[in-house]
Design a protein around this nucleic acid. Structure first.
Lengths: 205, 205
DNA sequence: TCTCACATGTAACTAGTTACATGATTGC
DNA sequence: GCAATCATGTAACTAGTTACATGTGAGA
């Protein structure tokens, strides 16, 4: 049994509750977006974790009855919870246990068929470009709704905005990398079949 | 019991064995560097996984006796293993379940003391700068030892180099982000205490 | 004498995933 | 009638971590 230590997910939830009280359901949505961009969890992990945080006195809940909807449990952070969160925030970070399935594939991509490999890279580029566009929209929205608060380091929106800026940088870098690698594929192909008309493969069958 | 599916770690090991046969011990070292930069695993996970890959016929081992050293098991990839790896490489990627503990902390950094927060950011910047320097050294080394092979998309060193380029981009982006945020802290502080001499804190005790 | 590199593993646990389970209301 | 949103969870499993366990030889 886990006695004292709070897992990162716990701190994610505390971080959200430090902004405002929320129901479990609300927290699940917020863990998808925006927190999911850097820490992701399922509802089957969130509900038990909330219970654990409450057992340790870091959050409390009250049941709120609603008309024509199920009751909900609205959680709030306690003084103890806030202290725990504050202590953790500036504490040591274990350099992230990098896990990038895509890069793992790239590590073996020399084995792949050239066309397939290029298509694979292009597809991933598109996915990241889409995510980048999403972040850009998000940024514009934050800038217009929060304005100067985004520069106030004691404002929650500053913190949210900072994570968004990192996401933007990350996606931009990924798209750039995909293009760079795709270019190497293109270059390599043109050197192999130089100056001739591109071969149009005849469909067999 | 897991029946058919190979986990990412399995493909990481296959990816290494597709380059050359290796002992378990060698694979452990290679999983630290360079594979550890994008997929990390402990020896307690690696040994059982090798056994599982062998049970599924994706790798085989032979025991090699050494003089004045313990025997070792040298693993090689089989035809089946190579086929499995090739099929996986260009297959679908589940968009990485992003988990970045540092960003999770940043999400709550508005709660932190200003000086501590800035020191925290600066410290992380230094960690990433160090990693960046390591990657730069690695790149120079690869460029001088592999030369033109790095541009040949069918060469294993091309694949390794591609992952390294991504690492460089990632670290560069992280360092830039840290500086950007640190600048916001500095700016914010100077606006709070404008145009006066910087306060030198007196050491108490 | 002590630590490092070589070499191989197991046991016990925690974190996280997938699938299961329920039930009301609103809109197509 | 069917899917989506609101609202809460549990059960069974897999992946991954931490700590334990053993032994040789080389060099400081």
């Amino acid at each position: 049994m886990r006695r004292c230590a709070v897992i990162p997910l716990g701190y994610a939830l505390l971080g959200l509750l430090a902004r405002a009280p929320r129901s479990g359901y609300d927290l699940i949505r917020l863990m998808e977006r925006p927190v999911g961009f850097f820490w992701h969890a399922r509802r089957s992990q969130i509900y038990p974790e909330l219970a654990r945080l409450e057992a340790e006195g870091l959050v409390v809940h009250e049941v709120v009855a609603q008309h024509q909807r199920p009751d909900k449990k609205v959680y709030s952070i306690t003084e103890t919870g806030l202290r725990a969160l504050r202590a953790w925030v500036v504490g040591p970070v274990h350099m992230p246990a990098d896990r990038d399935e895509f890069m793992l594939k790239v590590f073996s991509i020399w084995l792949a068929d050239r066309e397939q490999a290029l298509a694979f890279i292009r597809d991933y580029e598109a996915q990241h470009a889409e995510r980048l566009a999403l972040y850009e929209r998000e940024r514009r929205e934050m800038e217009s709704t929060h304005g100067e608060a985004l520069r106030d380091v004691t404002s929650p929106s500053f913190a949210s905005f900072a994570t968004l800026l990192r996401g933007l940088e990350y996606e931009r870098g990924y798209v750039a990398w995909c293009r760079q690698i795709a270019a190497l594929y293109a270059k390599d192909a043109s050197e192999t079949r130089p100056a001739s008309a591109p071969s149009v493969p005849t469909q067999p069958g």
